[in-house]
Structures are given as C-alpha cells and as structure tokens.
C-alpha cells in the first residue's frame, strides 16, 4: 500500500480554482520534491492536504494509507501521521513552546493509545530531540515562535516534526529565508529523521535545499497540475534551464 495517493485533486480558494487535477503517489521511505514557480499551486497542495479551512476541495480524492483523507478533520489527519511544516509559522503569545509541544505530543499519543508524558518525562524527550535542530533549550520556555527569527521559527517547525515523528512530513518552503548555516542545520535535522517508515515532501523554489536533502523524485507543478516528474537530476536541469521548457512541454 502506498502512503499517499493523490488522484485528480482539484481545489479552490475564495472561488478561484488553484489545483486543477493533481496526481501524485508517495511510498514509504521516499523523499519527494515539488518545484514550480510562484502561483503554480505548490503551497496550496500542502495546505489542502493538511486541511486548511480556507481551501475547498472541488474534485478528486486523496488516500492516506488507503483511507479517505478528506473524511478526517485537520487534527485527525495530524493524529493519523500527517505533518505540515509551515512556510510562515504563526506566533502564539503566552503559550510556552514546551507546553505546546507536550500537548501536541500527548494528544497524538492518546489517539494511538500510546503513553502520555508528564512535564518532567517530556522534558527529557524534548531535550534529546532538540539536538536534531541544534536549538538552545531556552527556546522551550519562550512563547511559541514569539520573537523568534525567521531561521529559529523554521528550526522550531522541524523540532515539532522531531517530537511528533509523522509518517508523512510536508515541508512548505522550509528553505525560504534561511541563511546557509541555518539551511544546513535544518537539512541535517530532516535527514536524521528520515526512515523507511516515513516519507518527506519538500515544496521549494530552489535546487539549493536539494543539495542537502537529496530527493528520490522531483515533480514540477505548473498551473495547478504536476506536469513533469523525474529523478534528482531534474532539479539540476531546472536550475540550469529555468521552467520555460517544462511549461512549453506541458
């Protein structure tokens, strides 16, 4: 069984059709990159999969481990193992990062019948996992994303991924706004979380990230569809030749 099967997915926002029939299959242990110009529908695809309320699904189907994803509320998708790392992580004043992480962790554990952790036990876990993104543990006591730099927010997203161990992690332009050191740290973090039991989808404009997290498949989106799929060399070709030739071929 495939981890994720997207068939003819159509979706709109504010009455404007953005996704016009997306087909995509993702298997366990795979790393996919979805590339394309602004407005091609990459970020919309991420948000539709995660269940953002602003988007309306108008056609097609998505199976997550064989189950109809659209029958699940956003929080149920998360509990089923879907994770979205946000392009623009929001701030939540007054809510400590550690309390937020623990609530998320315990909620997901509870839904799986797993063991919930008290604050002390959770602290051990989070201090272990935070090494993955080389973050200062002081960030755990601060309010979620409040006053974090762009790079710190992105690292915080990957920390959440490290805590929640999703089956499918969608990284929506996680590389944007990162300097080269932060990019390396984030990429190392993601790589350390890769396994044969999960899969990663990177949504990105640039080849740069793919030097650090090497994809098995590269897809090119254009005008709401995936118009070309290839191996990691496709990303290099795009870097060299731009998107025009793909669009022309589509």
């Amino acid at each position: 069984m495939k981890l994720l099967q997207v068939k003819g997915l159509k979706a709109s926002v504010d009455g404007v059709q953005i996704l016009k029939g997306v087909d995509l299959e993702i298997g366990y242990g795979e790393v996919h990159a979805i590339m394309g110009l602004n407005g091609s529908g990459k970020s919309t695809l991420s948000k539709v999969l995660a269940g953002h309320p602003a988007y309306t699904v108008t056609g097609g189907e998505v199976l997550f481990e064989g189950k109809n994803l659209f029958e699940l509320a956003p929080e149920e998708r998360a509990r089923a193992g879907l994770f979205l790392a946000f392009q623009y992580p929001v701030e939540v004043p007054g809510v400590s990062n550690s309390a937020f992480l623990r609530l998320a962790y315990n909620t997901q554990q509870a839904s799986k019948g797993g063991e919930e952790l008290d604050p002390l036990e959770f602290d051990d876990l989070v201090r272990e996992r935070i090494k993955v993104v080389e973050m200062d543990p002081a960030f755990l006591d601060r309010s979620v994303n409040e006053g974090f730099s762009g790079g710190e927010k992105k690292r915080n997203e990957i920390l959440q991924m490290a805590i929640l161990s999703p089956k499918l992690a969608i990284l929506d332009e996680t590389d944007s706004g990162l300097d080269i050191d932060a990019l390396r740290i984030v990429a190392n973090g993601v790589n350390s979380l890769r396994s044969e039991h999960n899969a990663i989808v990177m949504v990105t404009h640039y080849q740069r990230l793919l030097n650090y997290i090497v994809p098995d498949f590269v897809h090119v989106m254009h005008a709401g569809r995936i118009v070309k799929t290839g191996g990691k060399e496709l990303a290099l070709e795009l870097e060299e030749r731009g998107y025009d030739w793909v669009r022309a071929a589509a």
């Binding site: 956003p74 929080e75 998360a78 929001v90 004043p93 609530l103 998320a104 909620t107």
Partner: peptide, 19 residues
C-alpha cells in the same frame, strides 16, 4: 497551527486563552 499538530479546537482555544 494547533489543528495541524493534532490538537482539537476546544483545547486550542483554551490553551491560547490561558496563555
């Protein structure tokens, strides 16, 4: 954000307000 981490709406509102 809360929903996408598996947290239901009641708990999310409660956590935001209590924060």
């Amino acid at each position: 954000l809360f929903a996408s981490r598996g947290i239901g709406q009641e708990e999310a509102v409660s956590m935001i307000i209590n924060g």
